[in-house]
């Protein structure tokens, strides 16, 4: 599928090519969805650390449910929210494997809150990629625990009213209070500089696992242009101007 008609002229060397741990399958995400960037960064991290042959990924329920199609790694599909428990089972069964879960905010911060908090609190030696786009994307744009106050979703048609639906859940801040986790950070991918920072964070989160440092979680504040009903470029702007107000970027916990 990636066969291209354009031939690279002589005298050029590759600067950027598709990561080897990705398959040929096209991503199933909507145009401009940050999931695509984040999925790619995970693959780049796996490539750079040379861990493809011992990595097991855990696909969530949600927009990333097709993740196993995209990677050339062993993969398991978990029940909604249970990825951290499944990761615990795999890692405990075979500590030589590098185990990562990839979860959205509905999966990780609503239905899977308990599994996430307790895996973090046990300091499970796993890597968690947490995509916070403030909405349930796959099911059609319902309110997520991370939905911003006043934000319109199909289940908050007048905007999220904090008096009846509560406030955006800052999962990373919660987890950073625990003694168990090794690394909790919040990143974004709305521009190249932040993409590079996010990649560094993902690499660190995997490296921690390789070094046996315990639970690492990289939250990435992302845009879902489809459900925001904006263009992908405006989605980037949304992250900067709206989402980051509630979800400030940076490391929340780094244990060395």
């Amino acid at each position: 599928m990636s066969v291209t008609e354009v031939k690279v002229p002589a005298g050029y060397v590759p600067v950027y090519t598709k990561p080897k741990s990705l398959s040929e399958a096209r991503f199933t995400y909507c145009p401009g969805c940050h999931h695509g960037i984040i999925t790619r960064l995970v693959a780049e991290a796996i490539d750079e650390l040379g861990i493809q042959e011992r990595t097991v990924g855990i696909a969530p329920v949600g927009c990333a449910v097709f993740l196993s199609d995209f990677f050339r790694c062993d993969f398991v599909q978990a029940a909604h929210g249970r990825a951290c428990a499944v990761a615990t089972g795999i890692k405990r069964a075979n500590p030589d494997l590098i185990v990562f879960s990839y979860q959205g905010d509905g999966d990780l911060a609503a239905i899977g809150t308990a599994e996430t908090v307790h895996a973090a609190n046990r300091g499970e030696n796993i890597t968690v990629i947490f995509v916070n786009n403030q909405i349930y994307g796959m099911t059609g744009g319902e309110m997520a625990p991370t939905t911003l106050p006043g934000m319109r979703t199909v289940t908050t048609p007048e905007g999220r009213d904090v008096r009846t639906t509560g406030y955006p859940l800052r999962m990373s801040e919660m987890l950073a209070q625990l003694d168990g986790p090794s690394y909790i950070t919040r990143q974004a991918v709305f521009d190249v500089r932040h993409v590079q920072m996010a990649k560094k964070a993902i690499i660190k989160a995997f490296k921690n696992q390789i070094e046996g440092k315990g639970f690492s979680l990289v939250e990435i504040v992302a845009a879902c242009p489809t459900n925001l009903r904006v263009s992908p470029v405006e989605g980037n702007k949304w992250v900067v101007e709206q989402a980051l107000k509630y979800f400030p970027l940076g490391d929340l916990k780094v244990r060395d």
């Binding site: 060397v13 600067v15 096209r26 960037i37 190249v192």
Partner: peptide, 21 residues
């Protein structure tokens, strides 16, 4: 210029970038 910023932002891994030696 082969800076690859396009590829860094591409959500579909659809871009490869090459630089002149």
């Amino acid at each position: 210029t082969g800076c690859a910023m396009c590829a860094q932002m591409c959500p579909d891994v659809a871009i490869e970038v090459y630089r002149a030696v």
